[in-house]
Design a protein around this nucleic acid. Structure first.
Lengths: 217, 217
DNA sequence: CTCGTTCGTTAGAAGTTATAACTCTCGCGA
DNA sequence: TCGCGAGAGTTATAACTTCTAACGAACGAG
């Protein structure tokens, strides 16, 4: 996971304990959801008693924020690794689904129900921009069989490209990247919530059809 | 909201108290999210002390389940009212967004992050089928300017139509209805989570473009 | 009017987050 | 190498939470 960035022995140990806390916190979240995360239970699991965790995280929210940060980072790293290996839109879409299915609660920590008061720190917004940049690069690199029809949205997109690091792609490709993200997210979020299986549908087939439409539509 | 279905005075009173509990529970959920719902706080608000609520709901989960049921019911009623008044796909899409924006946490209670263990009771699945039926009726009633291209998905959809009450629509329209749902949900869920404003984009414009593509694309 | 069902209450158990105060130990500087 | 201070982990405690148990009061059917 995170490199310990060795300095003093104290800091090395501190970073190690932080990682162990996060590890057990993840286990709890994946099995019972983020709202069921109990600091006490985590402490007990790693053999420390309760309040010791507060040496490492100011409070429960800060721990969860750190996990959210790691989740965004993980997605961005996965995408960037794929981009470095040479990818196309189809592969990127399947990569996204694999990443989501590997840990549904991690996906929902990133894209799921928001807590009304909560605002994500500025750096995770930047990490999301990295993800969008990979997506947009892939869109512009690959041939676009049938370009999206021009729409009033294009003008808006041409003026607002901060979300992809001011990527110099034409509005049509901005639109395509955005549509890819929102449409795949729609499918994934419903699949992970179990709505499709509850309806007797095969999520993989739905996803494949949407990927086909987006990449070669 | 729910008609008291007057029988004995006791039952009438009981239903009334149940409604009041749910009312205050909703207030808490809309302002702080479902995970922050506190039975004690609700009890205090309506002037009862703590454990009294357990005469009305077996536990916290049962109260939340009831709220989920009401949320599904509200969406189905909204859609059916719209259908009765004569609607088209565009109007239905805008109705959905209005319903979502009216209470984002209600939307997420229906379509948001699932709790790992939790399985929705069978009747809410049926209510969701009502929603899909309205959507599918609207798809088949209105002219489809450019029918979706045939895809391998069609065969699967032809065999699995329980999710829309065994609606006898052709697979292409099943596909269109499903795509409408998943694509609008993708946009709405990201909008309500604040991702678009966080990226400097206008959610209404994105939504309008997607509706345009779905209805007249 | 009586009596049983139901309602609301208090008391309490077991859990949670979080703070305060204390002890011990590690490792850095002299 | 020695000493001392910073930091880690501990217990105790406060203020919460959900939920059960036991008790008393009120309501309504007979």
């Amino acid at each position: 996971m995170a490199e310990t960035e060795a300095k003093t022995p104290r800091e090395r140990y501190r970073a190690q304990v932080r990682e162990e806390i996060k590890k057990h916190a993840w286990e709890q979240i994946t099995t019972a959801g983020a709202s069921a995360l109990s600091l006490n239970a985590v402490a007990k699991q790693i053999g420390m008693s309760g309040p010791a965790l507060y040496r490492y995280f100011a409070n429960r929210d800060e721990l969860i924020t750190e996990l959210i940060r790691d989740a965004f980072r993980s997605l961005a790293d996965t995408f960037q690794a794929r981009a470095a290996a040479g990818t196309d839109l189809t592969d990127l879409a399947l990569t996204l689904r694999r990443w989501a299915l590997a840990d549904p609660q991690r996906y929902f920590l990133v894209f799921g129900t928001p807590v009304p008061g909560y605002h994500a720190p500025e750096d995770v917004t930047r990490t999301l921009a990295e993800v969008m940049t990979v997506l947009l690069d892939t869109c512009t690199a690959a041939p676009t069989p049938s370009p999206l029809p021009p729409s009033p949205l294009d003008a808006h997109l041409a003026d607002h490209r901060a979300w992809a690091g001011d990527h110099p792609a034409p509005p049509t490709e901005l639109h395509r990247a955005l549509a890819t993200w929102t449409r795949l997210h729609g499918l994934l979020s419903l699949e992970l919530a179990g709505h499709f299986t509850g309806m007797g549908l095969d999520p993989a087939e739905l996803y494949a059809a949407e990927v086909q439409a987006l990449a070669h539509g």
